[in-house]
C-alpha cells in the first residue's frame, strides 16, 4: 500500500521537480559564468551609489565586490526563490485541498488507510524532492566554481633596494591580468549552510502550505492564502529593516531567519564555524546580548516552524469532515 502511494506521489511530483531541478542546476552555473566575465573591483563606484540602501542588505555592500559574496547572492536571486517556493507551494497545497478539489480523495480514503499516513508519505516524497532541488543549487554552484576562471590583476613586481631592507613597486613593469580559476578564489563548501538555509525556508513554506491545505477544499484558495502570507511577511521584513524604530518587528517575519548572504560573509570573513548554532560575541546587532546566532540556528528556526505547521496540518486533516466532491 505504501509503495503504491509513494509511486503515485512520485509520479505527480516528477514533472515539476524535473523542471525546477533543471533551472536550479543551470542557473547558478550561468550566473557564475557571467560573474567570472567581470573584474569585480570595477563595480566599486557603482556599489558606492547604493550606500543608502545598505540597511536593507544583510551584509555590507562591499561584500559584493568579492567573488564569495557575489556568488552567495545566488540564494537571493528571484528565479531561485521562485523555483523553490513554487515547488513547495504546489506540492504542499496539493495534499488535501488538491485531492479534494479533483474529487480523488473520496476514492483514496475509501481504502483502509490512515489519514496521517497519507500525509506522511506525501511529505516524504515532497521533502525528498526539495532536498534534490537544493542539492541541484549547490551542485550548480560547485560546477560553476570548478569550471570557470576569471581575470585577476597581479600586483606589480617589487623592487628591493640593495643595502636597505625596503621595497617598492617596480615602475618599469606594468601590472598584468592573470587568468585565475575561480576554485582558487572561492571554496564551494562555503555555500553549504546557505543551501541548508534555503532548504529550511522551502520546508517551512511547504509546511505552511500543507497546514492551509488541510482545512481547505479549494486548491486555488489555499495557494492564494499561502502567497498572501508570504507577501505579508516580505512587507513586514522590509518594514522591520527600514528604521531602527521598526526593528522590533524583525522576529515576527520568518524571512528574518533566511540569511544565506550573511552566512557566506560570517563564515568566509568572520570565521564563524560552518555548523555553529551560536557563538559568544559582543556585536550590538545581536538579538540576544553577548550571543551571536550561527547559521544552523537560523535554519533550525525555519525547520522547527515547518515541523510545527506540518503537525498542525496533520492534526486538522485527521479530525475534519471531508466535504463531498463538487
Amino acid at each position: 500500500m505504501l509503495r503504491l502511494l509513494l509511486k503515485k506521489y512520485i509520479t505527480e511530483t516528477l514533472p515539476l521537480l524535473v523542471a525546477c531541478g533543471c533551472v536550479l542546476l543551470m542557473f547558478p552555473w550561468v550566473r557564475i559564468w557571467t560573474v567570472s566575465q567581470f573584474e569585480l573591483s570595477g563595480f566599486a563606484p557603482l556599489i558606492e551609489q547604493f550606500k543608502a540602501f545598505e540597511k536593507f542588505s544583510p551584509v555590507p555592500l562591499a561584500q559584493f565586490l568579492t567573488y564569495e559574496g557575489i556568488i552567495g547572492l545566488t540564494f537571493a536571486e528571484p528565479i531561485v526563490l521562485l523555483c523553490v517556493l513554487t515547488y513547495c507551494i504546489a506540492r504542499g497545497t496539493d495534499v488535501v485541498s488538491g485531492e479534494l478539489g479533483r474529487g480523488t480523495m473520496e476514492m483514496l480514503l475509501a481504502q483502509p488507510l490512515h489519514r496521517w499516513k497519507l500525509m506522511a508519505i506525501h511529505a516524504l516524497v515532497s521533502v525528498t524532492g526539495l532536498v534534490v532541488l537544493c542539492s541541484a543549487i549547490w551542485v550548480g554552484l560547485f560546477a560553476g566554481i570548478q569550471t570557470n576562471s576569471t581575470l585577476v590583476k597581479k600586483s606589480q613586481a617589487k623592487l628591493t633596494l640593495p643595502g636597505f631592507n625596503w621595497s617598492m613597486p617596480n615602475p618599469l613593469l606594468a601590472s598584468e591580468e592573470v587568468v585565475t580559476p575561480l576554485s582558487t578564489l572561492v571554496d564551494s563548501q562555503l555555500y553549504i549552510p546557505s543551501t541548508l538555509n534555503i532548504f529550511a525556508l522551502g520546508f517551512f513554506v511547504f509546511g505552511l502550505s500543507v497546514m492551509m491545505s488541510s482545512w481547505d477544499q479549494y486548491r486555488w484558495r489555499t495557494i492564494g492564502v499561502v502567497i498572501g502570507v508570504y507577501v505579508a511577511q516580505v512587507l513586514l521584513f522590509i518594514l522591520a529593516k527600514s528604521t531602527p524604530q521598526t526593528r522590533f518587528l524583525m522576529p515576527f517575519s520568518f524571512l528574518s531567519a533566511y540569511q544565506p548572504d550573511w552566512m557566506v560573509q560570517a563564515i568566509g570573513q568572520e570565521s564563524m564555524p560552518m555548523f555553529a548554532f551560536y557563538r559568544f560575541n559582543d556585536n550590538p546587532k545581536n538579538w540576544i546580548s553577548g550571543i551571536e546566532l550561527g547559521p544552523m540556528a537560523y535554519s533550525s528556526v525555519l525547520l522547527s516552524l515547518g515541523v510545527l505547521a506540518l503537525s498542525i496540518g496533520v492534526f486538522i486533516f485527521c479530525r475534519r469532515d471531508l466535504p463531498a466532491p463538487t
Partner: peptide, 19 residues
C-alpha cells in the same frame, strides 16, 4: 480503518486519477 478494510465504496460520480 478496520471498517474500510471490510467495505468497497463507489461514490456518486467517482473521480479517478486523471494522469
Amino acid at each position: 480503518v478496520q471498517v474500510r478494510s471490510n467495505v468497497a465504496y463507489l461514490p456518486a460520480e467517482a473521480k479517478l486519477f486523471g494522469m
